[in-house]
């Protein structure tokens, strides 16, 4: 699924708000004002709302159910999205490992934050990379070392 959009340059706040919403969805950026996502019921709905919002702020957009010209191109886009998530999982893994040596209070705060972060990444992870498992394991290990009421 593709979203092709144009938003007025000024004011910049709505532009940035749309940019952030697309980031949250984990879109692949194919060009200036062109993003891609695998199409399912949820992503289609989310993209539709964003398209609607772009219209309300004076921009324009079209939503496409598109097929890449070749399987290789589609694979490249999927690989790019997978790498973007892999980098996010690596950041979680690193923070979990650092927190393992921290004091209990600090550790449980980090644990809660990383659990939320894993959920967030998981929602936009359409092509799970190998790093996912490692990040999940590191956060679980952190939970097992923490007092039970925090690990819940």
């Amino acid at each position: 699924m593709l979203l092709a959009y144009r938003i007025p340059r000024q004011p910049s706040t709505p532009r940035i708000s749309i940019w952030r919403k697309l980031d949250r969805l984990g879109v692949a950026r194919l060009g200036d004002g062109l993003v891609a996502l695998p199409a399912d019921a949820r992503t289609r709905e989310q993209i539709d709302w964003i398209a609607e919002e772009i219209g309300e702020m004076g921009g324009s957009s079209t939503v496409w159910l598109a097929a890449a010209g070749s399987a290789a191109q589609e694979k490249d886009i999927a690989a790019e999205m997978r790498q973007a998530r892999a980098a996010e999982y690596r950041a979680v893994l690193q923070q979990a490992e650092t927190a393992a040596g921290a004091r209990p209070g600090e550790r449980s705060r980090t644990l809660k934050r990383l659990q939320a972060e894993l959920r967030r990444i998981g929602r936009r992870d359409y092509f799970p990379p190998a790093e996912r498992e490692a990040a999940q394991r590191a956060v679980r290990a952190l939970a097992e070392d923490s007092p039970s009421e925090v690990a819940r």
Binding site: D48, W49, A51, E52, E53, E56
Partner: peptide
């Protein structure tokens, strides 16, 4: 629904 007033806004 897209285009309806009673929908997502902002």
């Amino acid at each position: 629904m897209r285009g309806a007033d009673l929908s997502h806004h902002g």
